[in-house]
Design a protein around this nucleic acid. Sequence first.
DNA 1: TCCCGTATAGTCGGTCCCGACTATTAGGGG
DNA 2: CCCCTAATAGTCGGGACCGACTATACGGGA
Lengths: 211, 211
Amino acid sequence: MAKRKISNTLALAVLGLLREQPMHPYEMATTLRERHKDGSFKVNSGSLYDTVGALARHGWIEPVETARDGRRPERTVYATTESGRHEFVRWIDELLRTPVAEYPKFMAAVSYLGALGPDRAAEALAERAGHLAQRIEETNAVLADTVGSGRVPRLFMIEAECALHSWEAELAWTRRTIAEIRDGSLSWPEVQRTEQGWTWSGPTDSKGSTP
Amino acid sequence: MAKRKISNTLALAVLGLLREQPMHPYEMATTLRERHKDGSFKVNSGSLYDTVGALARHGWIEPVETARDGRRPERTVYATTESGRHEFVRWIDELLRTPVAEYPKFMAAVSYLGALGPDRAAEALAERAGHLAQRIEETNAVLADTVGSGRVPRLFMIEAECALHSWEAELAWTRRTIAEIRDGSLSWPEVQRTEQGWTWSGPTDSKGSTP
DNA sequence: TCCCGTATAGTCGGTCCCGACTATTAGGGG
DNA sequence: CCCCTAATAGTCGGGACCGACTATACGGGA
């Protein structure tokens, strides 16, 4: 599978918005924020203008008007093209079908959990758990205020449900791991340098070395 | 909280490796792959040399030797510094404590699930579910072969357990959503453009419009 | 009426990151 | 013994991404 010409998912959001209505970049940003889509797309003005430019170069969108209100900066309004609308659907299809490797910061830190020692690790994870619980609550509130009140169809906020499930899973894992650290069921070997290679020792693990 | 000087987590991996032993960049890459850490860190030669250079500029690591084997390219061997070792621990602590917004590609696609229509969406999700199941199986096999056989302490592969849980959660959500699409409990409104704004209609949702 | 904070709209320079590429050598099958 | 592949070690140019900055207009309190 050849690499996508544009891989920034912000471009997907742009195509999605322009499918509804011609718009200028600044309006795209505010619309995405209004609809709470800024949890799924990193909306950054710099990236946005870059992305819109790239989409235009590829012929997936095109400028349809350059208006000027008084002496404010010029606004360039864009619309999708036929090929842009097709690309939009193809891209979504591909993103859904084939999982790609992601490298969340949390996973990197968990890789070196050992370096903190059991007490500090448990404490740090506990703080994270608190933040996660709060984030989950906030998202639930947003869902209640939109889908829950019938103002927005559920399908239009489905990604919030997806994110919620993912955070709940992370929270569950975090809490379980805290418990395992505290009750000692996750043994904490100390690493030592020797001339042979690496040696570790711990409450339940036997000594060994990596070749 | 001021922004970190280096945010690429590959730098964390480098600090972690050099804490054990002085090394040259190429050896870091192969070591990370051997230890199956390339699921948590994106190991790319270009990024690696950039990252090592940045770490050296900040004084967190330093070159200790530049050896040359025959007429092969020069190898620069690096070691951590005192401040590098402190930074390592501080960084892990911070990454664990405070969750940051991540923008997985899947979330972006789910945002526009509607654009595929129910049948194609369900089919695409089903294909994803298959890939996820396979990935889970592969990771389980790796865990069985390392931790399961007692060759590596569980703590050293803990991030694989974490990733496994996260994928299992995603798989569960995916399967549940497929079922909801197929049995019609996730209603699929059609969006139409009107002069007022946006109108949708669907089996269970009442008509409405976004202001 | 004057000022100040906020909303509107976008530009710009620099850093980060990637992957394709180069160059050398060890190893092994024919 | 020779060629071909894989492994070793790293370079480089270009594109993606970010966030700080500019500039104008509007609204409301002092």
